[in-house]
Simulated assay, not measured.
Amino acid sequence: MSHDGEYADLQEVRLQGSVLGSGLDPSLSKAQVSVVLPVRDGASTIEAAVQSVLSQQDCVFELVVVDDGSFDDTLPRLESLARNDARLIVVKQSRDGLVEALNRGLAVASAPLVARMDADDLMLPGRLSIQLAAMAKNPDWAVVGSHVHLEPPTPGMQRYVDWLNGLMSPQDLSREIYIDSPLCHPSVMFRKERVLSLGGYRDVGWAEDHDLWFRLHLAGEVMGVVPQTLHQWHDLPSRLTRTHPRYSFESMMCMKAHYLSKAFGSSMRIWGAGRDGKRMARALEGEGVEISAFVDIDPAKIGGVRRGSVPVIGPDDLNPPQPGDPIMIVMVGVIGARDDIRQTLRTLNYVEARDFICAA
């Protein structure tokens, strides 16, 4: 579904200036990539973010900034920057929200490739040209991410970034997609046509970026990664990830359950009879999935029941998988424990993504 007609009446501010950055062939004028950057009340960081994009070299790009009804002086700052660089396109909207801003940005973007950027982050030198080269080398990739540097390195987010930066290949991203978002949204570049064919961004009650990765994944699209640090990600208290219910643990659990049910059917087993396992069971039941068993290593839990009548069994009770067996959803995310469970299941000839999925 294309959004071009829906957003044909955008209020677009385009101010004249130089078209190409230093080091570019002046005969090139058609953008290879459109950078889409939504912002609301980002006056304190927007100039640094924009300059980090405009400083990119060795490629031709445009920067589409969608101002989501800022009350501060974000818009005047953007208009001042745009007077000196025609690559900067400023789009204004009422306070319609992030998802609407992203889709408006896609509608304005003229290039076949779109790179994401956030208003409080920094694009590190070389990112656009490196990701362009990766997409040219891998025409089957629908999206490519990168590794990121977190600033400041807060403990909870640093654990996520360490995990993220350990993903090195499309196979890694596909295997880990149910654990957490395997791509840092503002670090990605994607093929616009493939994203629009799936309906663009959606506001469905959970994270709009991870929702898009799931839809690409289930559509059979390949997601890749450049295993280089190309983005500086700022973990500020005001980030939507920290403040909006769309990004809460419960919302993420509902999203995982939704896509697990779409991918693996209506009967599942859960490894982990603790809090997270029970939360996942509740979310899966909300999607019409029957939980046939819990697996746990705690002797105090083995032999009992959960969720009314669902038995709790131990690893020793498992047999090698047979055709038609319910898939196993591993809901143990303790450092080291996930790999131990993987090894246990592999010893029983379980194949990841066929017989079991790690989702915590």
Rank of each mutant, 00 (worst) to 15 (best):
A136T: 09
K137L: 15
K137S: 15
K137I: 15
N138H: 15
N138L: 08
P139R: 08
P139I: 15
W141V: 12
A142R: 02
V143N: 03
V143Y: 02
V143K: 00
V144W: 02
G145W: 07
S146V: 00
H147V: 00
H147S: 02
H147R: 00
V148Y: 02
H149G: 00
L150V: 03
L150E: 01
L150M: 05
E151Y: 04
P152S: 06
P152C: 05
T154D: 04
T154H: 04
M157T: 02
M157Y: 04
M157W: 00
Q158H: 05
Q158M: 11
Y160N: 04
V161C: 00
V161L: 01
W163Y: 13
L164M: 08
L164W: 02
G166E: 07
G166A: 13
G166N: 15
G166Q: 07
G166R: 08
L167A: 07
L167R: 04
L167P: 00
L167E: 02
S169A: 09
Q171S: 06
L173H: 06
R175G: 04
E176V: 09
E176A: 11
E176P: 05
I177K: 04
I177A: 03
Y178L: 06
Y178G: 00
Y178W: 11
I179W: 14
I179E: 11
D180I: 14
D180K: 06
S181W: 03
S181R: 01
S181V: 11
C184V: 10
H185C: 11
S187Q: 08
S187N: 12
S187Y: 13
S187M: 14
V188W: 01
V188A: 01
M189T: 14
F190K: 09
F190T: 11
R191D: 14
K192C: 11
E193F: 07
E193S: 15
R194A: 06
V195D: 03
V195P: 00
V195K: 01
L196P: 03
L196R: 05
S197W: 07
G199N: 12
G200H: 05
G200K: 04
Y201C: 03
R202Q: 11
D203R: 13
V204D: 10
V204M: 14
G205A: 13
G205Q: 03
G205D: 05
W206L: 02
W206T: 06
A207K: 00
E208P: 02
D209W: 06
